[in-house]
Each structure stands twice: as C-alpha cells, then as structure tokens.
Design a protein around this nucleic acid. Sequence first.
RNA 1: GGGCCCGUAGCUCAACGGUCAGAGCGGGGCGCUCAUAACGCCUUGGCUGGGGGUUCGAAUCCCUCCGGGCCUACCA
Length: 572
Amino acid sequence: MARHLITSAIPYINGIKHLGNLVGSQLPADLYARYLRARGHEVMFICATDEHGTPAELAAAKAGKPVADYCAEMHAVQKTLAEGFRLSFDHFGRSSSARNHALTQHFARRLAEHGLIAEVTEQQVYSPTDGRFLPDRYIVGTCPACGYANARGDQCENCTKQLEPRDLINPRSAISGATDLEVRTTRHLYLRQSLLRDRLRAWITSRTDWPVLSTSIALKWLDDGEGLQDRGITRDLTWGVPVQFPGAPWQGMEGKVFYVWFDAPIEYIAGTAEWADAHGLPDAAWRRWWRTDEGANDVRYTQFMGKDNVPFHTLSFPATILGSGEPWKLVDYIKSFNYLNYDGGQFSTSQGRGVFMDQALALLPADYWRWWLLSHAPETSDTEFTWENFQVSVNKDLADVLGNLVSRVTKFCRSKFGEAVPAGGEGGPREAGLAADLAARIRAYEGHLEAIEVRKAAAELRAIWVAGNEYLQAAAPWSVVKTDPDTAAAQTRLALNLIRLYAVLSRPFIPDAAETMMAALGCTDWTWPDDVPAALAILSPGHAFATPDVLFRKVTDEERADWQARFSGTRT
RNA sequence: GGGCCCGUAGCUCAACGGUCAGAGCGGGGCGCUCAUAACGCCUUGGCUGGGGGUUCGAAUCCCUCCGGGCCUACCA
C-alpha cells in the first residue's frame, strides 16, 4: 500500500465550469483517485475553488453582491455540481479560507527571509471611475496597427499584435467605458524566481517521465529570452490575502493582496489543512501529507491540470516551495491536458459557449458524461466534442456493450434458473480461457491507469466488457440449456460473476452504474481482482440477485438534434 | 515576431527508428435469438498534410512549405 496525494487544478469561482474544464483536470484526477483507492492505497484528493482576483470582484459587482457573499454562493454551487459528477474529493476547499490566508502569508514571509522577495515601484493605469487599477486586458481602445476599435491592452484580438496599454488610441476602461484613465505609482512585491532558475531547471530536467506538454512549457519559460523573469505577486485589490499582516517583513502594503496565482496553489496545502479541520483532526494529520520531515517522504504527489496552468505548477509554485527553505512536498508527476473543443470552436465560459456542468447533469446522469469525456480525454492534442460522437459513443459503449450484457445475463438467468445464482456443472477450457484473457486485459488496464493513460485505460475497459459478450456468444447457454442444463448453469453462474467483476473494474469510470450493478447482485464485495479465477467465483450457487432496470438508456436521434440546436448558441 | 504541440482510414484515436501502419465507430456480408432491433464472426477502407534529406530501414529523426491549436509572463 502506498500513499498518494492528488490535486486537481482549482476551478475559478466566477461561474459554472464547462465540460472542457471538467475533463482538463478534475475528472481525470477523480479517475486516478478512485482507481488508487480501489487498489487499497491511501489517497488524499484535494480540490477547491480559486476565489481571488479581478474577475471575481467584477462578477460579484455584476451580481450586485459583496464579493465574499458571491464567492460563498458560487462555492456552494460548484460543490454541488462536483458531487453531481461524483468527483470524490476528500475535501473541496476555498482559497479564501483562513488556512490559506495563514499559509500564504507564511510562505511570503519565508521567501522574504531568504532574500527572494523584492519591492518594486511601478506605474500602472488607474481608473478613478471604477475605483481600481486596471490590468492590461481591462483597458481597451483602437489598435494602432490595424485600427480595430476594441483591441485589448495586452493584445489586439483582430491582428494579434502584442500591445502595451499606452499604445492604444483612445483608451478606455473595459469595465465602465470610462476614459479618464490616469497613470499612478504603486509598489508591489516580486518573487525573485530568477534566482531559483538553476534549481528549477535541475528539478524539471530530472522529471524525464513527465508528458512533453508539461516539461516543454516549463523549459520554454526557463530559457526563453533572458530566462525566467521575476514575477509580481501582489495586486491592488481588496478581496484576497492581505499583504500587510502582523509580522510581515515589509511596511506600507496596506490595501494590497497577494496575486491569485501566488495563493491558489498554496490552497492545495491549505485545503488539506481544511480537510483536517473539518474532521476534527490535529495538524499532524495533514502535515504528514505535505511535510517530508513529518511523514510525507513516502507520499507520491500527482497534479492534474489543463495546459494553461503548467507554468504556474512547474515554476512559480515550485519556486515558492523551494524558496521557503522548508521541507514541503514537491510534486512528483504533472499530468497536463490539452483542450476540449465544442462543435468546431472553443468552449468559452465568458461567452457561454458549449455545455456547462449544470446543463449536462440536467440532460443525462453523470456516468454518461464521465464515460465520454474520459474515453476522449485530450491527452495528446485538442479534442472535439460533437453531439453525434457523444450519442454514438454512449449508445454503443454503455448501452449496447455493457448495459445489454448485464441485461441479457440477468434476464436469461431469471427465465431459466430463477433470480439466484444457479448451482451445478463446472467450467471447462472455454471458461479457463476467458479467465486468462481477462487477467491479461486487467493487468494492461492497471498499467494504463497507473501511468494515467486515460484513453488507453478506457479502451481496455471496453475490451474487457466486449470479452463478456464474446464469451456468451461462444458458450451460448440459451442453446446448451436445452440439452445440458448443468453446463448452462455453470456458464450462467460465470456470467453473473462477470457482472460483479465489471462493476469493480468500471467503478473508477462510471461509479453510479457500478453501484447499481453491484446492488442488483446483492453483493458488497468490491475486492480488486488480483486473482481473476477467484474473482469469478465470488457469487456462489444460491446467492439471490435482482434483475436490474435498464442500466444505460440510449440517446435518441430526436434528443441529439434537440440538444444540438439548444446548445448551438450562447448561454443566456 | 518567438516558442511549443498536433496533422495517420469517412469519424475518434493507436503504433520504443525495424514483421504487411493497427483498434473502435461507420459501410458491406454472414451467424445467433438470451438481451436495450441488442450480441458475435468475417469484410471494406490509408501515397501516415506536401516536398526534400539522413538511414540497410522513416508515420517515427533533420530541413522546408501548408493547415490547425496553445503559450508569450498584468485574465485565471
């Protein structure tokens, strides 16, 4: 038994996430966590909401609510949706928690003590009308290169030219439209991560087993141009972790908070502390996951994230950890994902394009989405969601291959032997062959899950389901029963045990259906099939079962067309 | 502008520089009748984006062009 710490990139607070967000971190992290638990490992799976930053403040203002209230409400919404998708977090925390405030301030102080914090005075655009400093992209104006009227201060979306806010003609606030912008002097803390460049490079180049997506992005940031740049870690905002606090090694930082990307990854640690608090456990309970001097030496830490998050997890956060000089656990493996596109374009939270988590659950149960998303996870390149593909995949894999298998076996048994595992007969070469075939496939399935090869694992699981149908077709108990009832009974007994085996194996992907299968069999034995022949004999003669309802229904052409039309525009 | 990733069958994807480039879906045929008109078997289908090069051997390595995507440090 090993100990696994798993974190998913924490979803931003300003709204409900779409399926692309889900498949890019939380869902594959859940698959991995569920698999490792099934194998008997000790798992700590942490996620949270990322609640700070300008967009949260603006979203709250738009909703007409205090930002703290808005975040609390949206956290509750996201927590409910996570539960709806059966994301098995040990704790779903909040980056605004007291724990994260304390830890973020702790790390900042430690970094300062090691000479890794610089105070920098700089000029930034301020909008008196909005009462806030404006990030570059919140300043819009006419592009000096192409004349596009709504170019952003960081880049013109029309001609893709990189811009500075001062380049814009007739600049105005993207929030209020105000034009009375002024440049003000402000002072900020910078993380001197350039000083850690060599240590970071040594660490990253030693991670030879990471996906190329993870390492190539990190190396580019380390070596591009003048190399890794120092990074501002504070902002002039009100909602966040205060920079000025008792014991802070700097002065005059009132009214400033830490940058969201500084405090967000620290929430992985703080979220584990929140977990301990929620269970009334002492600090040692969470520190044994994070402090290598307090028991975390044998922990394997895996992070899941979309490719846009990679720089922060390979550079900024490790710089924080390394720079602290304290024995905090560094990540062992970073699994990063490309993007899921929607019907020829991108999913977009800001534009309301695509299918969002709440909408998806209103259409179909979580397992349908989990299966499609995981079996099509964008591991090597961006992947496209289309309704046709979704319909075909769900109907064929879930309804026909797995669901119908459960149905044909239980109904056949009910009609010929009654609703109990039949006695009599014994297996022969065909049954031994099936067990051997399944054993080989299960070992391959385990290998793919341990390597977090999500699509390959899904394909192998499907092949395992298919093997059941192949066996039934070859054994043909519906024919055998006419002349040799004992042999048919043995075949049926094996087939019923196959359902139990499939419930165990499928649970990481489709937890609800797995529970339904197991419940129908009146069984609670979720033991992982290390010994396949033994696993195929757990349900013994006389064990009663119930013929379940349709496990997965099919998506009709009418529904597909309806959904396609309904989700073709933007969310209102 | 710079960097990275991707381009393989109608579709979604596989293939440590090494048997004939493989699966699933779709198409065609056969079988079965227990089952959600479900299942199984067979079959169809590719100049691996174009062009050059390295090599005994290239989907794989190098160059170049074309197409798509992402990042480029103040959105997160």
